[in-house]
Design a protein around this nucleic acid. Structure first.
Length: 633
RNA sequence: GCCGGCGUAGCUCAACCGGCAGAGCAGCUGACUUGUAAUCAGCAGGUUUGGGGUUCGAGUCCCCACGCCGGCUCCA
C-alpha cells in the first residue's frame, strides 16, 4: 500500500538507507518503491513524497517487468523499425509483443540476449517521467510507436508516465528497478505470434517469452523444474506406458486407446457409473448423428456451426455428426408428457462427440477432435436449480479430490455484454440463469472469478479449470444453466396446478472429457497410477526357472488382481526390477529359493521400494484395502 | 486458421561445407540361471513424413502438402 512519506515519519527529499525505511513500514517487505522505482536494502535513496513497501512476490514481478523493458530496449537497438506492443510480467516470467518487418526467429533471441547483458552491464539508471498526454503522443509519434499511441488513447486522465533507460523510452505505469544492473539472471525462452489486442483481425506481433530471477540459483531451479515437468508430459508417458496413440492416417485429434489406457478408462467409467447411480442419475444412450433439423431447433447450426463437421447426405436427408449430446437428451425428455413429480430428472451418458477444432489448437489428449464427455442433463423446476447446481459442484469437487487434484480454479462464465448476438435467448432469461449459478457458488462458499464472454451460446456456466504439468489450465468440470433450449424445444411438464410449465435444463460434465481427464491424470501421477486403476497391478518375478511352479501358485491365489508373470528367467534380477519400475507397476513380487522355502513372497513397492516378505493372504488383504480406499501409491 | 520451430529404424538421437544413412534401447535368435533400476554375443530393422524442383550427386538447398511442438485466436 502506498503511504505518504510524512505519515510514516520520513522526510521527502532526504537520503535514507532502504532497510531503515523498511523498519518504519514495519512489515515483511524486501524493498520499497518511491518515485516509481524499486530500491532494495543496501541502497541509499532520496525519498519521494510517497513510499510503498514491496513484498518478495511484488519485487519479482517488478524485476520481470523491467527485464521485459530491457529486452525491448535490446530489440529496438538491434532492429530499428521494431514497434512495441505490450510487455507485462506474467506468472513465471514475462513477455513483450513486438512488431518488426523482418521476421524474428529463435536465432534472433541469442543476439537479443547478448545485447540485453550488454545493456545490463552498462548500469543504466532508470528514470520515471510524467508527461501530459499531448507530450506523450508527440514523443511516441516521433518514435513511430503506433501501438503505444493506441494505448495512450485508452488511458484515463490527462497524464501518463514513461520510463527511460539510456536512449530507450517506454510508456509504462511501472514501477521498475532503479538500474539495469539489477537485471542479472534471466533467459529468453520462446517465441510465438500474438495478435495485437488479442484480435485475430489485427496485426500479428512477435511475442518473446522469457523469465528472470534475483539469483542464479532460482533461475537454474526454475529451468530444472521445466525439464522435470516435461518428463510428466502425458504424450511422453502415454507412449512409454503404451496407453494411447494418435495415428496420422486416422487423423489428427482422434485417439486410439491402447489396452493399458483402456483398462484405466474402464475402471474410471465403472466408478463413475456407480457414483451416478447413487446420486439419482439414469443412464441413456444416443446416436452419433442426427438430422439437420435437430440442430436447427437447438440453435447449433446458428451458433456452433464453425465447430461442426459438414453434413452428409443420404436419401435426400442431411445428417450431422453430433458436437454435443444435449438435443438427444431433450428428445428423451420429450418422448412423453412429464409431471413435476418426476423432476428433477437426471439423464447421464458417456457421450462421444466430434468437434472441428482448428488445426493449430490440437494438443495430445488435452485438445482433440473426437472425445467422450461424461455428460448429463438435469431437467428441473426453477426452484430446484440452486440445489441441483450445488450438488453437482460438490460431486465434481469430490471426484477431483479423489484423484488428488489440488489446483482448481473456479470461474463463473457469463456473457460478453458487448457481443450479445453470439448467444441465443432473451436478456431476462440469461440474468436468471447467471443469478442461479452465482447463488449456488455463494452457498458453497467457494472462491471464484467472473469470466466475461466465457458463457456457452445457450447459457452461463460454472467452469472449473485444472492445471497440467507445465502450469496451463484446462477446463474440466462444467455446470451450465440453460433456460433457452427448453424454450426452443418447447419442453413442458405438468405442475401441481395442473398447468404446463417450462423446465430448466442443467448441462454438466464432471470429468469434462475422458480424453482430457486422462491426460491430466497421467500428468498428475506421472504415470504412477493408484492401484485401483493401474493397468498392471502386480508383476511376479521368479528369480530362476526353479521357482516358476511356486510363482504360478502365487499367481493363482492372486487372480483377482491384474497380474503379469515375468518368466524371463534368462535376465538378471536387477534388469527385471528395472523393467517393472519403468513400466510403473505398483507391486513387484520377487520369488527366489528363500521365498519358496518359507512359503512367502518378497514385496517391492514401485514408489516405496522393498517392503520385505509377507504371506500371500496378508498381501491380498492389504491390496484389497488399498483398492477399496482408492488410495494413491 | 495465424506466427516461429521441428519431422532420419518401434523409441531416443548421430550423419562436417551437398559426396557410401549410423548408434543405443526395444524386437528376434542363442549363451548365461542370476537376490531388488541395465549379462554377453549374433540377427533383423530405412522410399530419411509425402510430392515436386535445383544439382554430376540431396537426409542436408528451394517450393508445396501433411503431421508434430511452443504460443496467439478459439474451446471439454
Amino acid at each position: 500500500m502506498r503511504m505518504n512519506s510524512h505519515d510514516v515519519g520520513l522526510n521527502p527529499g532526504e537520503l535514507y538507507e532502504v532497510s531503515d525505511i523498511i523498519k518504519k513500514l514495519g512489515a515483511n517487505f524486501v524493498g520499497i518503491v518511491t518515485n516509481g522505482l524499486l530500491y532494495l536494502p543496501g541502497e541509499r535513496v532520496a525519498l519521494g513524497d510517497t513510499v510503498e513497501g514491496i513484498t518478495a512476490d511484488e519485487a519479482l514481478d517488478i524485476l520481470r517487468h523491467s527485464t521485459a523493458h530491457l529486452m525491448a530496449h535490446a530489440v529496438k537497438s538491434l532492429i530499428r523499425d521494431a514497434k512495441l506492443g505490450i510487455g507485462p510480467a506474467i506468472e513465471n516470467g514475462f513477455y513483450y509483443d513486438i512488431y518488426t518487418k523482418e521476421k524474428i526467429t529463435e536465432d534472433t533471441l541469442q543476439l537479443v540476449e547478448g545485447k540485453m547483458r550488454e545493456l545490463a552491464e552498462a548500469r543504466l539508471p532508470v528514470q520515471r517521467q510524467v508527461l501530459s498526454k499531448d507530450a506523450a503522443i508527440e514523443l511516441f509519434s516521433s518514435l513511430g510507436e503506433t501501438f503505444k499511441l493506441e494505448l495512450i488513447d485508452d488511458i484515463e486522465g490527462d497524464e501518463v508516465s514513461v520510463y527511460r533507460q539510456g536512449d530507450f523510452v517506454d510508456l509504462c505505469r511501472g514501477p521498475h528497478v532503479s538500474n539495469t544492473a539489477h537485471i542479472k539472471h534471466f533467459k529468453l525462452l520462446s517465441i510465438s505470434g500474438a495478435y495485437w489486442r488479442g484480435d485475430e483481425n489485427r496485426e500479428q506481433l512477435t511475442r518473446i517469452y522469457g523469465t528472470a530471477f534475483w539469483t542464479d540459483e532460482d533461475l537454474r531451479e526454475y529451468l530444472h523444474n521445466l525439464e522435470e515437468a516435461e518428463k510428466r508430459d502425458h504424450r511422453k508417458i502415454g507412449r512409454q506406458l503404451d496407453l494411447f496413440s494418435i495415428n496420422e492416417d486416422i487423423g489428427p485429434g482422434l485417439i486410439l486407446w491402447h489396452p493399458n489406457g483402456a483398462i484405466i478408462r474402464k475402471e474410471i467409467e465403472d466408478y463413475w457409473r456407480n457414483v451416478h447411480l447413487e446420486k439419482g442419475y439414469q443412464f441413456v444412450y444416443s446416436p452419433h448423428v442426427a438430422r439437420t433439423r435437430l440442430w436447427e431447433i437447438s440453435g447449433h447450426l446458428g451458433f456452433y456451426k464453425e465447430n461442426m463437421y459438414p453434413p452428409m447426405e443420404l436419401e435426400n436427408q442431411t445428417y450431422l455428426v453430433k458436437p454435443m449430446n444435449c438435443p438427444f437428451h431433450v428428445q428423451i425428455y420429450k418422448a412423453k408428457t412429464r409431471s413435476y413429480r418426476e423432476l428433477p430428472l437426471r439423464f447421464a451418458e458417456l457421450g462421444t462427440v466430434y468437434r472441428f477444432e482448428r488445426s493449430g489448437v490440437l494438443h495430445g489428449l488435452l485438445r482433440v477432435r473426437g472425445f467422450t464427455q461424461d455428460d448429463a442433463h438435469v431437467f428441473c423446476t426453477r426452484e430446484q436449480v440452486e440445489d441441483e447446481v450445488t450438488d453437482i459442484m460438490e460431486l465434481a469437487l469430490d471426484m477431483y479430490r479423489l484423484f488428488g487434484f489440488e489446483n482448481l480454479k473456479i470461474e463463473l462464465s457469463v456473457r460478453d455484454p458487448m457481443n450479445k448476438d453470439k448467444y441465443v435467448g432473451e436478456d431476462d432469461v440469461w440474468e436468471l440463469a447467471e443469478k442461479a449459478l452465482e447463488n449456488a457458488l455463494k452457498r458453497a462458499g467457494k472462491e471464484y472469478v467472473v469470466a466475461e464472454g466465457e458463457a456457452k451460446f445457450y447459457g452461463p456456466a460454472i467452469d472449473i479449470k485444472v492445471r497440467d504439468a507445465i502450469g496451463r489450465y484446462w477446463q474440466g468440470p462444467t455446470i451450465q444453466v440453460d433456460f433457452n433450449l427448453p424454450r426452443r424445444f418447447g419442453m413442458k411438464y405438468t405442475g401441481k396446478d395442473g398447468r404446463e410449465h417450462e423446465p430448466v435444463m442443467i448441462h454438466r460434465a464432471l470429468l469434462g472429457s475422458l480424453e482430457r481427464f486422462f491426460a491430466l491424470l497421467i500428468e498428475q501421477y506421472s504415470g504412477w497410477f493408484p492401484l485401483w486403476i493401474a493397468p498392471e497391478q502386480i508383476r511376479i518375478i521368479p528369480i530362476t526357472e526353479e521357482q516358476l511352479g511356486y510363482a504360478q501358485e502365487v499367481a493363482d491365489k492372486l487372480r483377482e488382481f491384474r497380474i503379469r508373470m515375468d518368466d524371463d528367467t534368462g535376465s538378471k534380477l536387477g534388469y527385471r526390477i528395472r523393467q517393472a519400475q519403468m513400466d510403473k507397476v505398483p507391486y513387484v513380487l520377487v520369488i527366489g529359493a528363500r521365498e519358496v522355502q518359507e512359503g512367502l513372497v518378497a514385496v517391492r513397492h514401485g514408489v516405496k521400494g522393498d517392503l520385505g516378505k509377507m504371506g500371500v493372504e496378508e498381501l491380498a488383504k492389504m491390496l484389497r484395502e488399498e483398492i477399496r480406499q482408492r488410495a494413491h501409491l
